[in-house]
Write a protein that binds this DNA or RNA. Structure first.
Lengths: 243, 243, 243, 243
DNA sequence: AATGAATGAGCCTTCATTCAT
DNA sequence: AATGAATGAAGGCTCATTCAT
C-alpha cells in the first residue's frame, strides 16, 4: 500500500532523446541478432545500452515493440539503398536481376538480422497486422512492379499469377540462404541472382516451348498443336517428340 | 477456491510398449499442432495421452525429442503415399507437376503440422543435425530426381544449379502457403501446382533467351495464334481472352 | 512501431497557482474515481491535468496526499450542502431522517467517490491520522448531535452507547450501498432512510424495558430470571407485562 | 529455444499431499494477515511454508486463489462453531444476541483475518463472483433466519425490509470494530452485542411507540401528536393510517 | 517555476526435467 | 515400470518519486 521507497540515485544522464533511442535501438539490434529474440533479455539490452530496464519502457511499450522498431530501421536502410540504384538500371531482365541480387545481398550482408526477421518475427501470431508486414509488402511490390512493367511492355507474358512469381522469387531466395543465415553454409548472391533471374525470366517468356533456331522447330510446333488438340499436357509433347 | 485437486490415481495399465508410444505420440501431435510447440506443455501432452509427465520421459528423452518423433511419423506417412503414386505418372512435366502438387496438397491438408515443422522445428539451432532434416532432404531429392531425369533425357537443360531449382520449388510452395498455414488465407494446390510447374519447366527449357527479333519471330506469332484458337492450359485461357 | 513519441513541449503556462491546483485536483478526482487509486498512475493524472508529472510534486508531496486533497474537497462540498438544509428541519425524527437520507443520497449521487473513500482511502494504514478521518468524524458528529438533542429532550433514551448508534447508522448505510457502489445493484435512498430512521428511532424509544433506576427494576430482574428459565426473549417481557 | 537447464537438486521432501496444502495454507494465512495481501510476496509465503515458489503453483493456480482458500478455511471454522451452539439457544432475542455476539467475537478474536477479508478481499472487483461471497451470504442468512422466525412467531414486525436489518447488524458490527481491526482501539463484543441486539430487537417491536402503562405515557403521546402535526415522514403515514 | 526523463527494486508466474516412492 | 510432486531459475514489466536542466 505504501509506495516503493526511493533509493539513492546513482547518476542521471541526460542525453538528447534521439541519442537515447538510437543507443537503445542499436543495443537491442545487437543483442537480438546475437542471441535471438526469445533468448534475449530486456536486462541485457538495457545494460548494453547503458540504461536501466525501466528506461527501455519509457521509449518502447514492450520488448516486442522494440523488436519491431529494430526491424523497421533495418527496412528503412534497405529502402534508402534501393530507390536510387534501381533508377540506373535499364531493361527488364537487368532490373529484375538487380532487385533479386539486391535482396540476396541483403540476406548475405546481414544474416543475423534476416534470421531474426524470418525465424522470430514472422512466425509470431500478429505478424500480419504489424508494420513490418506492410514494409515487407512494399518491399516485394517493388520487384513485382518490374515484372508488371515487363508484361506491359510485352516482353513477359501475363499468364502466370503474379503471386506465384513473387513467391518463387522470395521463397527461392529464402530457401537458398537458409543454411547461410544459420551460419552453416555459404551462397553467392551473384550466382544465385543470375540463376534465379534466368529461371523467372524464362518462365515468363512468351515463346513457351520453342527451342528456336533448330531446324525442325516448326515441325515440332505442329506436332504439339496436334497433341494439344488431343487434350494432353504440355509435358507429353516432349516425350512424344523424343520418342 | 479449493486447492488443485489431486487426480485420482490411475491404474498402472500394462499396455504394450508400442501402444503407449503411439498414444503419447498422437497426444503430442495433437497438442503441438493446436497450440504450437513452445506454447504446449508436457503436462498437457501427458494428460491427453492418459499418462503422467514422468512417463513421457521413459519413452522420450525430452520434449524436443518428442517433437522430432511426431514429425518423423508425419514424414513417414507422406512417403508412404508418394512412392506408389509417382510410379503411375509418366513424363517429366507430369511427374514434376505431380510432386509439386503433392507437396502443396500436404501443406493444404495438414497446415497445422506443416506450420509446426516450418515455424517451430526448422528454426531451432540443431535442425540441420536432426533426423527430420535428413528426411526432408530425402523428400526434396525425390523431386530433384525428376529434374535430373528430365535433364538426362535432354528435355531440360542443365544450365541452372539444381539447388536453385529446388529452392525455387519448395521456397515458392512455402511462401505461397504462408498465410494459409496461419489460418489467414486460402490457396489452391492445383492452380499453384500448374503455375509453378510451368514456370519451372519453362525455366529449364533449352530455348534459352531468344528474345530476339530473330527470323522465327513471325513463326512464333503464328504458333501463338494457333494456341489461342485451341486454348488449353488454365494459364493460357487468360491470354486467349486477352488476345 | 516507432518509439513512444515525445510529447510536444507544452507552453509554460503561467496560470494562477489556484487554477493549477484546481486542474490537478479535478484531474486526480476523475482518474481516481474511474480507475481506483492503486490502478491510477500519476502519469495519467498529470496528462489529464495538462501538466507533467514533476509538476504534480510541486503542489502535492505524494500521490497519496493528492488523494487526500481530492477527498477533502469532496467533504467540503458535502458540508456546504448540509449546514443550511438541516436548519430548516424540525423534530428529532425528521432531523435524523434528513441526515440519514442525506448520507444515503451522497452515496447514491457519487458512488465512485464514495467507493474511493471507503475501499481505498479508509483501509490505508494511516487513515486514522489523516485529515479525512477528522472530517468524517465531524460529519458523523452532526448526526450524533441530533441523537443527543433527542436524548436531551427526553424523546430518546440514553441507554444505548452513542457509538453503537453511530455505527449502526453509518454501517448500515455503507453495507446497504455496497453493491451499488460497485455498480452491481441499486438502492433507494428514500426507502432506506425511512426504514433505517425508524429502526434507530424506535430502538431509542423509552418505552422499552430499559429505563432502569425506576422502582420496578428489581421486579423486572426477577421477570428476566424467570424468562431465562423459560428460554424466552426479553422482548416478550414487555408485551407480557403490558398485556 | 532450449529448455531451461536443470540444476542440482537440493532435497526433495515428499509429505502427504494434505500436509503440504495445510502447510502452505497456514503460511499464507500468517503472511497475509501480518502484512496484508498486496504487501505479501509469494516468495515469503513459500519460504515460510518450507517449499519453493513453484510448489505453491502446483496446489494453487494463483496468489489470489491462495487467498480465497485461506479465507474459505476461516469461514469453515466459523461455521463449525456456529451450528452446534445456536441449537442450544432459545428465544428470538437470545438467539439474535448470540449470533451478533458470535459475529463480534469473530471480529474480536481474529482481527487480522477479518481485516484481510474486509479490506483486501471484499473490495476486489470480482468478489461478488467468488466463493467467499457465497460463504458470507450463507453466514448472514443464518442471522436473518432468526429474524424471520421472530416475525413468523409474531414477536417481531415485518414492516422493515430484511436487507436493512441485515445491513444494520453487519454494518454496525463492522464499523464498530473498525479501529480495533486496525490495531487502534478496543471494543467489547459483549457490550456491543447487547446494545446492538436491543436496538435491532426494539426496532422490530410491534408495539409502536405507545405501549407502556407508565405514568408519563400520556405525556409522550401528546408529544407524538405534536410531532405528527409538524411532520412528516412517510413511515409515519402508515402508522397514522393504521392508527 | 516547470519540465520530463531516469531510476531500480521487485513481483508473479511458468514448466521441462528429475527422482523418491 | 510407473508415478506425480518438487524443483528453481528466469524474465518482462510497473511506476512513484527525484532532479538536472
Amino acid at each position: 500500500m505504501s509506495p516503493k521507497a526511493a533509493s539513492p540515485p546513482r547518476r542521471r544522464e541526460r542525453w538528447p532523446r534521439d541519442e537515447r533511442v538510437a543507443a537503445i535501438t542499436e543495443a537491442a539490434r545487437a543483442v537480438f541478432c546475437e542471441k535471438g529474440f526469445l533468448e534475449s533479455s530486456t536486462a541485457e539490452v538495457a545494460a548494453r545500452a547503458g540504461v536501466v530496464e525501466g528506461t527501455l519502457y519509457r521509449y518502447f511499450p514492450s520488448k516486442r515493440a522494440l523488436l519491431l522498431h529494430v526491424v523497421e530501421r533495418f527496412y528503412e536502410r534497405i529502402f534508402a539503398d534501393y530507390e536510387q540504384q534501381l533508377m540506373g538500371v535499364r531493361g527488364t531482365w537487368n532490373r529484375l536481376r538487380f532487385l533479386i541480387w539486391k535482396h540476396l545481398s541483403v540476406l548475405h550482408g546481414d544474416p543475423a538480422m534476416c534470421r531474426l526477421i524470418m525465424h522470430e518475427l514472422r512466425p509470431s501470431p500478429d505478424y500480419r497486422r504489424s508494420s513490418v508486414f506492410r514494409l515487407n509488402r512494399r518491399y516485394t511490390e517493388r520487384t513485382m512492379a518490374v515484372i508488371k512493367e515487363g508484361i506491359a511492355a510485352g516482353e513477359l507474358v501475363p499468364g502466370v499469377p503474379l503471386t506465384i512469381v513473387r513467391d518463387m522469387i522470395f521463397g527461392c531466395a529464402e530457401h537458398h540462404s537458409w543454411a547461410y543465415l544459420r551460419g552453416e553454409g555459404q551462397f553467392s548472391p551473384e550466382a544465385a541472382a543470375d540463376a534465379l533471374t534466368d529461371m523467372v525470366y524464362r518462365g515468363l517468356q512468351p515463346q513457351a516451348l520453342t527451342r528456336s533456331g533448330s531446324a525442325d522447330a516448326s515441325v515440332r510446333r505442329l506436332e504439339q498443336a496436334v497433341r494439344r488438340l488431343e487434350g494432353i499436357s504440355p509435358a507429353r509433347r516432349t516425350r512424344k517428340a523424343a520418342g
